[in-house]
Design a protein around this nucleic acid. Structure first.
Lengths: 203, 203
DNA sequence: GTCTATAATGCGATAGAC
DNA sequence: GTCTATCGCATTATAGAC
């Protein structure tokens, strides 16, 4: 899943940047609601108010648009969980904040939920992306638990690798329930409770 | 999501039943791999070796086929978790067995994972089905925790409703990881560990 | 019960005008 | 940079022959 920035070299690009931004936003909405495979660039173009050809001028193909969307989402998420600066209990605390933020953006939650499930299939254009992403998430979480353990902040009997898996699973599973239940419970509160049972320090 | 059994009234139906069974199996494969919306009855018919028209003779429409598949899956699952007979710790123990069984049927895991995420959208033909199903699962799980608590088998501070939510989320989240990781870890072992931390009795 | 034929629609992508 | 026009293909579903 590579990017093609392909910016022009001079002049005023504000309009183009704006168009691209609107296409990406509409793409998130459509792929979240229908998935990637069943979501059409036709519909995305309609939402923006341009033609399909107009859309394909900005993004060479449907998979290219998907790649750009995933990249944008990662960039936004990185603002909440900067793995290079946070670690240990601090990072686990950041997870609660991220979940709380997600609750204000149902569209992004739905996009992740639908695309990750769809990308389970080996032939899906985002399969490699999600495999790599979960690998990274699990490694980051495990490191956080390991650091917490080294600081004596981890309850006895909690093993970092398994705890990382469980926490990640809890996040994803809660999101599914939250979407099906129309956002009628507090995900962040549940994650906080889960972490409080694993840590010896206050959150 | 209603069913149209519509059986003929006499004669030998072995052949028809066999055809229907093969269509359902192929449907599970295709919908698991591509989701409902992107999976085509064309492809399902191809896998069975019949025409699309032939398939639509047995199942009136694409949504009707989906309904039949979900019903079949529920019927199979009911053999593992009979809610009318099991309760409390016994039912929670049964969850581990169900997860262990699921690990032998990756196709069913994928079907559930992809369809439940897809059905998050209110317009999806299986939306009402999954909303009702999760409502039932959460109520059943909560009752099991409540019974366990009444028997003094529950660790202090575990609240049944939340625990039911967390356990269900863990199951779903682990399935997603398991599919992305190509089945390279033991889901049942993780669920067992989770339950062992919540219960005061051996599993 | 299964087929062919067909209808009507939607899809992603390309070519070329402006 | 955006458009129209068009291609080729896949989709669900129906009608009617056998």
């Amino acid at each position: 899943m590579s990017t093609s920035t392909a910016r022009p070299r001079r002049g005023s690009y504000a309009k183009t940047a704006e168009r691209r931004r609107r296409i990406l936003e509409a793409g998130i909405r459509v792929f979240a609601a229908h998935g990637y495979r069943a979501g059409s660039i036709q519909r995305i173009a309609d939402e923006v108010g341009i033609s399909v050809s107009g859309l394909l001028h900005h993004f060479d193909s449907k998979p290219a648009l998907l790649a750009a969307i995933l990249e944008l989402r990662d960039e936004q998420a990185r603002q909440f969980m900067d793995d290079t600066r946070q670690d240990g209990v601090e990072l686990l605390r950041g997870t609660i904040d991220l979940v709380a933020y997600n609750q204000t953006a149902p569209g992004l939650v739905e996009l992740h939920c639908v695309l990750s499930a769809e990308a389970t299939s080996a032939e899906h254009p985002a399969h490699a992306y999600f495999v790599a992403r979960y690998d990274w998430v699990l490694r980051t979480m495990r490191r956080a638990y390991e650091t917490a353990a080294a600081e004596g902040a981890l309850v006895d009997g909690i093993e970092p690798e398994g705890a990382a898996r469980d926490l990640t699973a809890l996040l994803d599973g809660l999101q599914l329930q939250w979407l099906l239940a129309d956002g009628t419970f507090d995900m962040a509160a549940r994650v906080r409770l889960h972490l409080e049972r694993q840590l010896t320090v206050p959150l």
